[in-house]
């Protein structure tokens, strides 16, 4: 029996790496994202932006490619801050969208996370391993977003297509 999975071609998104204290980052994000996520490995959406909490002092802001210039102008204005570092990293990640009836099965083969809805619900996000590569996994409704370093995209796509 073949799995029913659709794998989008790798896509580029606008991506900012944010590191620092919650207070300093909240100040820098004023007018862009009203609140930081309150639970580890969760996210908040505002407008076109998705802010993900990925580590004790690490967040990631994702947005469509066309929003990059405006977001960069908004985030990079003002003097450098000792307590908050914001870096544009759009070129460091390629994103697959994995959908279809058996998308969760494909993801559970790809990565070691417990992906049961009670453990990894909608809008849950995590940094993990996918086929041996560091990866970002995000559950978006019934679809899954898999982000990884672009030079591994062809390898990971081939592994995913083997599942199909």
């Amino acid at each position: 029996m073949a799995y029913q999975i659709r794998i989008s071609p790798p896509q580029r998104h606008t991506l900012f790496d944010l590191r620092g204290t919650p207070q300093a980052l909240a100040a820098r994000l004023q007018g862009i994202v009203p609140n930081l996520p309150t639970q580890p490995c969760s996210l908040v959406r505002h407008g076109q932006g998705t802010l993900m909490w990925l580590g004790p002092l690490r967040w990631c802001l994702m947005a469509p490619p066309e929003a990059e210039a405006a977001l960069e102008a908004a985030l990079m204005q003002g003097p450098a801050d000792h307590d908050a570092a914001i870096t544009l990293i759009s070129d460091t990640q390629a994103f697959f969208r994995i959908s279809g009836r058996d998308a969760a099965v494909a993801m559970s083969i790809a990565c070691p996370l417990d992906l049961h809805p009670t453990a990894f619900g909608v809008d849950h996000v995590a940094l993990t391993d996918a086929f041996g590569v560091r990866a970002l996994v995000l559950r978006e409704g019934d679809d899954w977003i898999l982000g990884l370093e672009p030079s591994y995209a062809a390898y990971v796509e081939a592994q995913l297509r083997q599942i199909v």
């Binding site: 580890p40 990925l54 580590g55 995590a126 940094l127």
Partner: peptide
Amino acid sequence: CHSKGCGA
């Protein structure tokens, strides 16, 4: 080190 996760 949680090298492929949160990095802590």
